[in-house]
C-alpha cells in the first residue's frame, strides 16, 4: 500500500556550524568523561569467578527432583511437566509405585532431563502438582560431553541433596509433604475453579469444617 502523502512529514537536516565541523568541542567533552573515570574510579565489573553474583530469589537454574520426608522421590510421574515443557526436554518413564509406598499409585522409574535442550522457563515447576521439580540457583554446570548434560533421576535427586540446605534454594513446598494429588485422605478444600455463587461460604473456607473464617493466607509463603 502506498503511503498517503498527507502522512509524511518532511524534516530538514540541521546545519552544522563552524566549531561543530572541527569536532574539537566533542573531543574535549569525550576526554573529560575519560579523565573523570580515572579520577573517580567506581568499577561495575564483577571479578567472576573470584566474586560470585548474588542472584535474585526467582532465578531459574539447574533443576532438582525433590525428596519427601522419607527420602523417596516426590515425583508421581504425572508427566505434566513434560506436557508443559515448551522445549520437550523431559522424558519420564512411569511405573506402578512399589507396594510399600501406600500413598501413591505411580512413580517415575526414570526421569531424564536434557539440561542443554532446556530453556529454563520454569514451566515444569509451575505445572508440577506435587512440587517435585524445582529450579535451583546453580547456573555454572559444565559437562565434558552432551550426554553428560542429560541428567537422569539419580543426578536430579543428587542436586536436591546438594542444594537443599542452601538458604538460596529452600524447599519451596511449605508443608514439606507430598502435594494434594497424592494426599488423598487429607484433601484440603480447593479454591473455586469456576464461578462461585454469592453466599456460598464453603467455597471460600480455608480448610474443611471451617466456614466463615477470614480468607486463607497464600499457600506459598517463601
Amino acid at each position: 500500500m502506498p503511503i498517503n502523502p498527507k502522512d509524511v512529514t518532511w524534516i530538514k537536516e540541521p546545519e552544522i556550524g563552524f566549531w561543530e565541523a572541527t569536532f574539537l568541542p566533542a573531543i574535549a567533552k569525550g576526554l573529560r568523561i575519560t579523565l573523570g573515570h580515572v579520577t573517580d574510579y567506581r568499577p561495575v565489573t564483577q571479578q567472576y569467578p573470584e566474586q560470585r553474583p548474588v542472584l535474585p530469589q526467582h532465578y531459574r537454574g539447574v533443576h532438582r527432583l525433590n525428596r519427601d520426608e522419607k527420602g523417596r522421590v516426590k515425583c508421581v510421574a504425572c508427566m505434566l511437566c513434560a506436557t508443559a515443557c515448551p522445549a520437550n526436554c523431559i522424558a519420564i518413564e512411569a511405573a506402578a509405585a512399589p507396594p510399600d509406598w501406600p500413598d501413591r499409585d505411580k512413580y517415575p522409574a526414570e526421569f531424564v532431563l536434557d539440561e542443554l535442550r532446556c530453556i529454563y522457563c520454569g514451566m515444569c515447576e509451575e505445572a508440577c502438582p506435587v512440587d517435585a521439580i524445582e529450579l535451583t540457583h546453580i547456573y555454572d554446570m559444565t559437562g565434558e560431553s552432551r550426554a553428560a548434560m542429560v541428567f537422569n533421576k539419580d543426578a536430579l535427586l543428587g542436586i536436591y541433596d546438594k542444594t537443599k540446605d542452601n538458604p538460596a534454594d529452600p524447599v519451596r513446598t511449605a508443608r514439606g509433604r507430598l502435594g494434594p494429588a497424592s494426599e488423598l485422605k487429607n484433601l484440603a478444600t480447593l479454591g473455586p475453579a469456576t464461578t462461585v455463587e454469592r453466599g456460598d461460604r464453603a467455597a471460600t473456607a480455608p480448610s474443611p469444617g471451617v466456614i466463615g473464617a477470614p480468607p486463607p493466607e497464600t499457600r506459598n509463603t517463601w
Partner: peptide, 14 residues
C-alpha cells in the same frame, strides 16, 4: 456442568 470445587467437609471413603 459441575461446580469446580468440593464442599465436602468429611474424610473421603477410600
Amino acid at each position: 456442568y459441575g461446580r469446580g470445587y468440593s464442599r465436602l467437609q468429611e474424610p473421603k471413603e477410600q
